[in-house]
Design a protein around this nucleic acid. Sequence first.
DNA 1: CCTGACTCC
DNA 2: CATGGGAGTCAGG
Length: 529
Amino acid sequence: RELLNDSLIAKSGHDLKRQLQIANSQGISINGDLEDLLIAGYLVNAGLGDLELEDLSISYIQKIIPSWRNERGKTFSVFNLPPGLPDDIIAKICGARLEAVRQLKPKLWELMEKTGLNKLYHDVEKPLIRVLYKMERQGIKVEPETLREFGRSLKNRQSQLESDIYSLVQEEFNISSPKQLGVILFEKLGLKAPKKTKTGYSTDAEVLESLYDAHPVIPKILEYRQNVKLQSTYIDSLIVLIHPRSGRVHPTFNQAVTTTGRLSCTDPNLQNIPVRSEEGRLIRCAFVPPDSEQRLFSVDYSQIELRVMAHFSQDQAFKEAFLRGEDIHKFTAAAVFGVPVSEVSHEMRDRAKAVNFGIIYGISGFGLARNIGVSRKEADAFIEAYFSKYPGVKQYGEELIARAKQTGEARTLLGRIRKLPELSSRNFTLRSFAERMARNTPIQGTAADIIKKAMVSIDNRLCNNPELGKLLLQVHDELIFEVRGSEWPILAKIVKQEMESAVTLDVPLVVDFKLGTNWGEMTPVQLEG
DNA sequence: CCTGACTCC
DNA sequence: CATGGGAGTCAGG
């Protein structure tokens, strides 16, 4: 315990955030530098897939760590070994793991050094481990009764929809089975199947929306599906995850999953709680601050990915739009459609927005056409007009791919690496995927770098003064805090300062604030002056 | 255990 | 020739 507490002694291990949680549950705090092989392995090769100690050991020191397996050959996690396992076996497994840590550490640190990842590790990922640990331990309060009540109304609607659907198709079947639904729609009712999957007819939302008016059962099926999803994922499962003592859900933020450097979130995934649909948004209303004095406070980066693209591409027009504080989608629409900004219609803006996002993802005319519901030819024309207005963006995309082909990897602003060996594949599809990743990863990944760096700085500002507010969640371009309602402007100033100056780009970084008594009803707020 | 469906940025 | 990036969870099969 003394050693673990000693802040002058660095701690090496694998998945140290987990170790912090386990130690904390035993009333032990672990201080000192964290040298985490999981994070190092992730930075060295994020695309590797499994980064368990066993996997790193095979890849980097060519050693197999002994493990205990069940009858079917499945390995037990060391954190969940079967009860009654003899001590000498446990000792053998743990000893081998410790030895693997000892040998892996210099290997991985050397690889980080060689590939220029040291700074990213030390300045961002390492301090972020403790930030995420605190967020997980803090959790966010959820009102189970709000969820249950919404669940009851969903259940009623559900039975209504079921009987409507059965009577419309004159048959009872499992609406949740895409296989059975396909047979009903495309054989019994004789609707024309617009596309197929590997295993049969596709019945996804895109297909059903294209058939919206073709039969009165279609809208009911769409609503049924939305209902089932809300009920199973966002009501039933969420209630189970409320901790009985804290009244909160305590998600796990995974720092070593995504290929681009983003975080991911599980148990529950609070990065995909519904927000777009009115019904779905009701789920958010169950997420609340701990008492009536406090509020939830959200701060999100405005258009961070497009700003990153403006910076990297150095496109004059694109940069100017942000420097002048324009609405970027409106500005793009005006440029592409050749009208003044004041005459841009909603539809023009929506289409320009789709092109802006499409560009980030490595768009094709085909994909854009499908997305905004125009012909392939029209979509091609949009893209051409876009590139003629933003020639720097076009050139940047081409340069990115050329550069990535030379090095076999894509890099972000802070030097995060994604290996892309498929860039030299002779298979067109594989190569095209890699090319889109080469375009997208520097943008998505740089945005991830920026918010991670901001989280670390914010934590530094708040840690000596926890009454200012508590960071609860990160949703890719957004941070959510608990704050004493009357004091949100103090928190806002700190968070704004740290988020907007996390890095310096050639265009400004801008954040927006929202405040509310629950996560579903947040109102935009601004600092005075 | 995989697939296809839905949810998010 | 196939066709926008990154995730997680669920039910069905």
